[in-house]
Design a protein around this nucleic acid. Structure first.
Length: 180
DNA sequence: AACACGATCTACT
DNA sequence: GTAGATCGTGTTG
């Protein structure tokens, strides 16, 4: 079943590991894509210098300041889009970066979108390219949308790792990357 | 108006 | 292991 507002409205450090083993679903014009989430990172506005929201609200990060359950998609390094899920209450700037999924459905089209690269969806830029997710999807409400959402299919992840986040050189003491 | 850089990936050594 | 690609965004002048 589709994850509800209550799921996303909790603290980012609770939601992030809870997203492991959930299923990202995207009905694109190309077809249906499904991937099992197996790596995420938590970002928190206040007290987290690695977060886009740390220095306050801007045009780009505005979605992070809204209520939980919305998609925050940003463009990085002049080439790639990355997908986040906003968490917490309205006014609290938190989000979970979806770093990696396991292809479940739509793998053939993913391969095509990725130009036959060997690693299909094991990175935040890669999975967006494979699914065809871009800033067009920024601001979509994952709770009410029938196009982009996350499903619970009953899988429970009890054993997972916590490590420093990838690609940042501050707040290394925060073990906010979760994977299994 | 101009500039520096980033929650990345690929290719090549 | 490391360099280069490539451009939107936020900040500064």
């Amino acid at each position: 079943m589709k994850l509800t507002r209550d799921f996303y409205s909790r603290s980012v450090l609770t939601v992030a590991p809870d997203l492991l083993g959930k299923y990202l679903v995207f009905h694109s014009p190309q077809g249906k894509f499904v991937g099992e989430i197996n790596e995420v990172e938590a970002y928190r506005g206040i007290d987290d210098p690695a977060s886009h929201a740390y220095r306050g609200q801007t045009l780009r990060n505005a979605v992070m300041f809204g209520e939980g359950g919305y998609a925050y998609v940003y463009f990085i390094y002049g080439m790639y889009d990355c997908l986040n899920v906003v968490t917490g209450a309205a006014g609290v700037a938190e989000a979970v970066l979806i770093r990696s999924v396991i292809p479940i459905e739509g793998e053939e089209i993913m391969r095509k979108n990725r130009h036959n690269a060997k690693h299909l969806t094991d990175g935040p830029g890669k999975l967006c390219q494979a699914f065809g997710i871009t800033r067009e999807q920024n601001g979509i409400d994952l709770v009410t949308s029938d196009v982009l959402y996350i499903e619970d299919r009953g899988k429970v992840i009890t054993q997972f790792q916590s490590t420093p986040r990838i690609g940042i050189n501050v707040a290394q003491e925060k073990l906010w990357r979760f994977c299994y």
